[in-house]
Amino acid sequence: MEALRKIGQTGGCLVSRALSASLHRRQTGAVPLLLLQQKRYYADPGSYVQVVRDTVYEDIAVVKMNRKPVNGLNKDFLTELNITLEKLENNASYRGVILTSANPGVFSAGLDITEMYQKSPEYTSAFWRSLQDFWMRLYSTNLATVAAINGHSPAGGCLMALSCDYRVMAQGKFTIGLNEVQLGIVAPFWFQELMIRTCGERETEKALQLGTLYSPEEALKVGVVDEIVPLEDVTSVARERLIKWLQIPDHARVLSKQMGRHQLREKLHSKQEEDIAFFTNFITKDAIQKSIGRYLEGLKNRKK
Results as ranks from 00 to 15, higher is better:
A109N: 08
D112S: 12
I113V: 15
T114R: 13
Q118P: 00
Q118D: 11
K119C: 06
S120Y: 05
E122M: 11
E122N: 07
E122C: 04
T124E: 01
S125N: 11
S125E: 14
A126V: 02
R129D: 07
D133Q: 11
D133A: 11
D133I: 08
D133K: 13
F134G: 02
F134C: 07
W135C: 01
W135Y: 14
R137D: 01
L138V: 04
N142H: 13
N142G: 10
L143V: 07
L143I: 06
L143C: 10
A144E: 09
T145V: 14
A147Y: 10
A147G: 12
G151L: 12
G151K: 09
G151Q: 09
H152E: 08
S153F: 03
S153E: 06
S153Q: 06
A155R: 14
G156S: 12
G157C: 06
G157N: 06
C158T: 13
L159W: 00
M160W: 10
M160G: 02
A161G: 02
S163V: 02
C164S: 15
D165K: 01
R167H: 11
A170Y: 01
A170Q: 02
G172S: 04
G172Q: 06
G172V: 03
K173H: 11
F174R: 03
F174S: 04
T175S: 12
I176K: 13
G177K: 15
L178T: 07
E180G: 11
V181N: 12
Q182T: 14
Q182N: 15
G184I: 06
G184C: 10
V186Q: 08
V186I: 10
P188T: 03
F189E: 02
W190R: 06
W190Q: 09
F191K: 02
Q192P: 01
E193F: 10
L194N: 14
M195K: 12
M195F: 14
R197V: 00
R197C: 04
E201T: 11
E201R: 14
E203P: 00
E203Y: 12
E203R: 13
E203T: 13
T204C: 14
K206D: 12
Y214K: 07
Y214T: 08
S215G: 10
E218N: 08
L220F: 06
V222Q: 05
G223C: 11
V225S: 03
V225P: 02
D226T: 04
P230Y: 03
L231F: 03
D233L: 05
D233F: 04
V234N: 09
S236N: 09
R239S: 05
R239E: 02
E240M: 11
R241H: 15
L242N: 13
L242G: 11
I243N: 06
I243L: 15
I243W: 03
